[in-house]
């Protein structure tokens, strides 16, 4: 598999408009299972066919139970300079509810360990809106994050998708649907507490100290081209998006035969406008009015005069130096606002 991925990198070396690489992200699933040799193979292949910037952000996604001292050392030596750790919670009960294999102690330890080894740029994932009688666990989770002094926090609202374990539990009345009011209050507590402790909400679910934003994820929101390799990976070159086949065997077979097993969709002007709205409004940079006009072929402001005026009047949207930004109350309705501004 890893060899196939390395081969795909070679096959796709001309996909991106230029060969300078600013960020690399090992993610989706558990890339922490990679061995030293595998990781080195991938890094080496990228290095041979692309120019990796000296200050490139190289992130690896990992679960706390995978982050042993030896693993962390391998990652550090391979050039990984940022970790995104799926901590979810520092509370034992909540971890159990979320069906996680790691313990609260492991969650805490791995952050300290990573820092000792020299990976200082650490992001942790936290889940909020987990059913609880009050907000004390959320608050203690945040306190623990502050104590560990992580650079970045991604906080996601618990969502129950159909055809998942939670989805089935919901169907069988084993759990209650997420209480919207509870989730909204937790979201508000989260934003406020993080702000008080120096974490800036630069995207709906992402918070950073000292501008240590995820440069990689920010690229998605700025419509910058990216190349994804491996089964199920997706790529974007500015006008179309490609999706690799999800099936591992099919993926490896195709790559070995020298072809890319991908389907793609061409993004129309409307698609690009809508994606920009969808992702841009979630960020602290908002969406630039000029860019909206050029993406939409000059239609955007004309089509949405009334909606824009109403949204501003209702205090959901504000305009600042040529960009549209969500207000604090607008952030609770980011999807609704974006879709109301979509064009056909």
């Amino acid at each position: 598999m890893v060899e196939a991925i390395a081969k795909e990198i070679v096959l796709r070396k001309s996909y991106l408009p230029d060969s300078n690489i600013e960020t690399i992200y090992f993610g989706g699933g558990t890339p922490s299972v990679l061995s030293r040799l595998e990781l080195e193979l991938l890094m080496q292949t990228i290095g041979e066919h692309f120019t990796i910037a000296a200050d490139a952000e190289i992130t690896l996604e990992a679960n706390p139970d995978d982050l042993s001292q030896s693993k962390l050392e391998i990652f550090f030596q391979a050039g990984i300079n940022r970790l995104s750790i799926g901590i979810q919670s520092f509370n034992e009960d909540h971890l159990q509810f979320l069906n996680r294999v790691h313990s609260a102690q492991e969650a805490e330890n791995c952050v300290r360990l990573a820092k000792q080894i020299g990976i200082n740029n650490i992001s942790i994932d936290l889940i909020y809106a987990i059913p609880a009688p009050d907000h004390s666990i959320l608050k203690s989770d945040l306190q623990k994050a502050f104590e560990l002094d992580v650079a970045h926090i991604s906080a996601y609202c618990l969502t129950i998708e159909p055809q998942t374990v939670f989805g089935n539990w919901l169907k069988r009345d084993k759990i209650k649907p997420i209480n919207e009011e509870f989730a909204a209050v937790q979201f508000e507590i989260l934003i406020e507490t993080l702000a008080q402790n120096g974490y800036e909400q630069y995207e709906i679910s992402n918070f950073a100290r000292n501008k240590q934003y995820s440069r990689h994820n920010s690229s998605y929101w700025k419509q910058r081209p990216y190349l994804g390799v491996g089964p199920s990976a997706h790529s974007y070159n500015g006008t179309s998006r490609e999706f690799n086949v999800a099936n591992n065997a099919k993926y490896v077979q195709a790559i070995q035969a020298g072809s890319i097993p991908a389907t793609y969709e061409i993004l129309t002007a409307a698609d690009q406008t809508n994606e920009y709205l969808l992702t841009g409004l979630r960020t602290k940079w908002g969406v630039n009015s000029g860019k909206l006009e050029s993406l939409s072929g000059g239609k955007f402001a004309m089509l949405h005069q009334k909606e824009l005026a109403d949204m501003k009047k209702n205090g959901w949207l504000r305009e600042e130096s040529g960009s549209l930004l969500l207000t604090a109350s607008g952030k609770l309705f980011a999807d609704r606002i974006a879709s109301d501004l979509f064009i056909d």
């Binding site: 996601y156 609202c157 969502t159 919207e180 009011e181 989730a183 909204a184 979201f187 709906i204 679910s205 994820n217 998605y220 929101w221 990216y226 994804g228 199920s232 990976a233 997706h234 974007y236 998006r241 999706f243 969709e265 698609d271 809508n274 994606e275 969808l278 992702t279 979630r282 952030k331 609770l332 309705f333 980011a334 999807d335 609704r336």
Partner: peptide, 17 residues
């Protein structure tokens, strides 16, 4: 009270749009 999805990265974008 709230209408915002949690995650929105790379491949999610197309699906979410």
């Amino acid at each position: 009270r709230k209408d915002v999805l949690a995650k929105c990265y790379g491949g999610d974008i197309s699906r979410k749009r």
